[in-house]
Every structure is written in structure tokens, then in C-alpha cells.
């Protein structure tokens, strides 16, 4: 990411528990429909399990559980139901963020990205690197490294 404020960044958008999120497109490996997730006993509640994606073993993480988001409405990803996954490659490992709905790719100007509101939920603030004001809703930009840094979160909690 660059500080060049006029620059356009493409964001993959998705929702989890009704909240709109975005990830810079270059961080997203693929978007897939997770099937056949194997539960991992003794793992934290945010770990949905592991699955086989074209020969790679992907660790699936529930975004809503990770961020303590509460589900309203029926299109909710739960332990046994996850409609879509955002595939990420981070530190040579594959991850899948389980989300409810994947939306379009938006081109947004970096200059419009605003810092997190100071009253933002602590857990959310930790993983967010800014907010875009879109028509009708707010898009929270996620920081892949911090979303996947489960250990630090647990230590902080």
C-alpha cells in the first residue's frame, strides 16, 4: 500500500454479520465456496476447521467469530454453514475467511480512507486499517496480518 493519496485501490468487498468489509484485491488469492470443512478439535472458536482447496490445505477462519460480531438475520455463517470464503495467502500459508456474502470489487481513492473512529469496537479497531464512507454504508478495511494474528488477540484479551 502506498501513501500516494490520489491512488485508486481495488477492494474486494464482503459482508459478515451485516457489516461490510473490504480487502485490497492484491491480498486476495481467490474467492471460493467452502465445502467439506474438517473441524479441528481443541482449536479456538474462530477456527472453523481445515479444508482441501485444490491440493492446498486451507485453514478456515470465521470472520464473525474472530471479530465477535453478532448475527442478525438468516444469512449467517455459523460453524456448520458458511456460504463463501475469501482465500488469502499469508506467510506462505493458505487461509480462508468465512463470510456471508461476497460483493463487487470497488475502486476507491486512498484519500477517502478515514482513520478508525475512536469509539470503534476494540476488537474491530485492532484489525481495521481505516473506513470508507460509501453510499448508505461504511466499509471497514481489514488488515490481513492483524486479522490472522490470533495469538496476539488472545494474549490481549
Amino acid at each position: 500500500m502506498t501513501n500516494d493519496s490520489a491512488k485508486l485501490t481495488e477492494y474486494v468487498t464482503f459482508t459478515s454479520a451485516g457489516q461490510l468489509f473490504g480487502l485490497p484485491i492484491e491480498r486476495v488469492q481467490d474467492v471460493f465456496k467452502p465445502t467439506n470443512i474438517t473441524r479441528v478439535p481443541l482449536a479456538g472458536s474462530e477456527i472453523a476447521g481445515v479444508l482441501n482447496l485444490r491440493g492446498r490445505i486451507v485453514t478456515a477462519i470465521h470472520l464473525s467469530a474472530r471479530l465477535d460480531l453478532e448475527h442478525r438475520g438468516h444469512a449467517a455463517a455459523t460453524k456448520d454453514y458458511a456460504p463463501m470464503a475469501i482465500g488469502l495467502e499469508y506467510e506462505a500459508e493458505s487461509f480462508g475467511l468465512l463470510v456471508d456474502f461476497v460483493g463487487e470489487v470497488l475502486k476507491l481513492t486512498e484519500a477517502d480512507r478515514e482513520p478508525n473512529p475512536i469509539n470503534l469496537d476494540r476488537k474491530l479497531a485492532r484489525v481495521s486499517s481505516g473506513v470508507f464512507r460509501l453510499d448508505g454504508q461504511l466499509l471497514v478495511v481489514l488488515d490481513v496480518g492483524r486479522v490472522l494474528d490470533l495469538g496476539a488477540e488472545a494474549a490481549a484479551a
Binding site: 479441528v40 478439535p41 481443541l42 482449536a43 477456527i47 485453514t59 487461509f95 490472522l148
Partner: peptide, 12 residues
């Protein structure tokens, strides 16, 4: 296949 780094702490 090696364990995911997020699961490596599970000793079993």
C-alpha cells in the same frame, strides 16, 4: 502436510 501455524499450539 505441515500444520497451519494457527493450529500448531495444539499438542495432540
Amino acid at each position: 502436510k505441515p500444520m497451519s501455524s494457527k493450529l500448531r499450539h495444539i499438542g495432540v
